[in-house]
Simulated assay, not measured.
Amino acid sequence: MVTLPAQLASDGGPWRLYVVLYGESQWPTVRWERSGPVPTGAERRAALASLGYEVAPGAAWSWTEDSRDPDDDSTPVLLIAAVTVRGRQGGAA
């Protein structure tokens, strides 16, 4: 079965969860119009299901942080979580 990366990201504003589709200009996306709290595991699972995906067996969310300007530590932090997903039975991919 084909697996793809999904990411959850926020730069202090709304949270966005999207599935990375290589070679495509638009990716399936869900947006939470809140800056906090971080969407729960159940919320992320439901969002992925609404897009036709599920977390791949054995995959776990991993977190990292980035910055718009890595050389300036006073710029807002961008939090990114990533997980491997697969199409749900009868769903996407």
Rank of each mutant, 00 (worst) to 15 (best):
M1V: 13
V2Q: 15
T3Q: 07
P5S: 13
A6Q: 07
A6V: 01
Q7N: 03
Q7D: 03
L8Q: 01
A9R: 10
A9V: 08
S10Q: 06
S10H: 01
S10G: 01
D11M: 05
D11V: 02
G12I: 01
G12N: 10
G13W: 04
G13E: 08
G13A: 04
G13T: 04
G13P: 02
P14A: 15
P14G: 15
W15V: 05
W15E: 11
W15M: 11
R16W: 06
R16N: 05
R16H: 14
L17G: 05
Y18A: 08
Y18L: 04
V19R: 02
V19G: 00
V20H: 09
L21M: 14
L21C: 09
L21K: 13
Y22L: 12
Y22H: 04
G23K: 01
E24C: 10
S25M: 09
S25A: 11
S25N: 05
Q26G: 08
Q26W: 15
W27G: 02
W27M: 14
P28Q: 13
P28V: 12
P28W: 11
T29D: 08
T29F: 07
T29P: 03
T29G: 14
V30L: 06
V30S: 05
V30K: 14
W32L: 05
W32H: 11
E33L: 08
E33G: 11
R34K: 15
S35V: 02
S35E: 09
V38E: 14
V38H: 10
P39Y: 06
G41K: 10
A42M: 07
R45P: 01
R45V: 12
R45F: 07
A46Q: 10
A46L: 08
A46D: 10
A46P: 01
A47I: 01
L48F: 12
A49H: 02
G52M: 08
G52I: 11
G52C: 06
V55Q: 08
V55N: 00
A56F: 02
A56M: 07
P57Y: 14
P57Q: 13
P57W: 13
G58M: 05
A59G: 12
A60L: 09
A60G: 05
W61Q: 09
W61V: 14
W61D: 03
S62Y: 09
S62F: 13
S62V: 14
W63D: 08
T64P: 01
T64F: 02
T64E: 15
E65V: 14
E65K: 07
E65Y: 04
D66T: 15
D66V: 10
S67E: 13
S67D: 10
R68F: 05
R68N: 12
D69P: 02
P70V: 04
P70M: 06
D71Q: 07
D72K: 04
D73R: 12
D73I: 02
D73T: 10
D73E: 11
S74Q: 11
S74G: 11
S74E: 12
T75P: 06
T75L: 02
V77T: 15
L78K: 09
L79H: 13
L79D: 12
A81I: 14
V83M: 09
V83N: 11
T84D: 15
R86E: 15
G87M: 12
R88A: 15
G90E: 09
G91S: 06
A92Y: 00
A92Q: 07
A93I: 00
